Amino acid sequence: MDIEAWVWWLIGAAGLGIPLVLTAMPEFGMFAVGALAAAGVAGLGGGVVSQVLVFVVVSVALIAVVRPIANRHLSQQPAHATGIEALKGRQAVVLERVDGSGGRIKLAGEVWSARALDGDTSYEPGQQVDVVEIDGATAVVL
């Protein structure tokens, strides 16, 4: 029983897909696509040299093109702040006197515990304050 070359390339592609899933290293996926391309060449009757050449060219091209794009996307900050980061810099209304030891504000439609950034400063109900940071479940205001 003689197995054709394109079957070996498919087995190789599947073999390269396993570490892709286990390690989350996208390079293995790019090599798997190269193996699929070589399987196509083998299925069309291409020789061993052309199969290996297609495998190498497709794999290297994918790594050269896709990897920098993926790294760029991973290093970018999200366009919109979410969660706690979205609350920093927003304005709030004081509901209960806020000083260095505590108080209550209305921030983004919700009631939050708050404390003044400067422990000697206090804010009275109705005043507008700016949220400087979120410390746990407490908004630090200025």
Rank of each mutant, 00 (worst) to 15 (best):
residue 1 M to Y: 09
residue 7 V to G: 04
residue 7 V to T: 09
residue 12 G to N: 06
residue 15 G to P: 14
residue 16 L to R: 09
residue 18 I to L: 13
residue 20 L to T: 12
residue 20 L to H: 08
residue 23 T to C: 06
residue 25 M to K: 04
residue 27 E to Q: 12
residue 30 M to G: 08
residue 30 M to K: 09
residue 32 A to L: 04
residue 34 G to H: 08
residue 39 A to G: 11
residue 45 G to H: 02
residue 45 G to A: 06
residue 46 G to T: 06
residue 47 G to V: 03
residue 47 G to L: 04
residue 50 S to L: 12
residue 50 S to E: 11
residue 56 V to Y: 14
residue 63 I to M: 13
residue 66 V to F: 15
residue 67 R to Q: 08
residue 68 P to H: 13
residue 70 A to G: 02
residue 72 R to N: 12
residue 75 S to M: 14
residue 78 P to T: 11
residue 79 A to V: 09
residue 83 G to A: 00
residue 84 I to K: 02
residue 84 I to N: 03
residue 87 L to D: 02
residue 87 L to C: 00
residue 88 K to M: 13
residue 92 A to P: 13
residue 93 V to W: 03
residue 94 V to T: 02
residue 94 V to E: 06
residue 94 V to W: 07
residue 101 S to L: 14
residue 102 G to N: 01
residue 103 G to I: 04
residue 105 I to D: 12
residue 106 K to Y: 10
residue 108 A to M: 05
residue 109 G to A: 00
residue 111 V to W: 01
residue 112 W to L: 01
residue 117 L to T: 10
residue 118 D to C: 13
residue 121 T to P: 15
residue 123 Y to N: 01
residue 123 Y to A: 00
residue 124 E to G: 02
residue 124 E to R: 03
residue 133 E to P: 04
residue 137 A to G: 11
residue 137 A to P: 11
residue 137 A to S: 15
residue 138 T to G: 10
residue 139 A to Q: 07
residue 140 V to M: 06
residue 142 L to V: 13
residue 142 L to K: 14
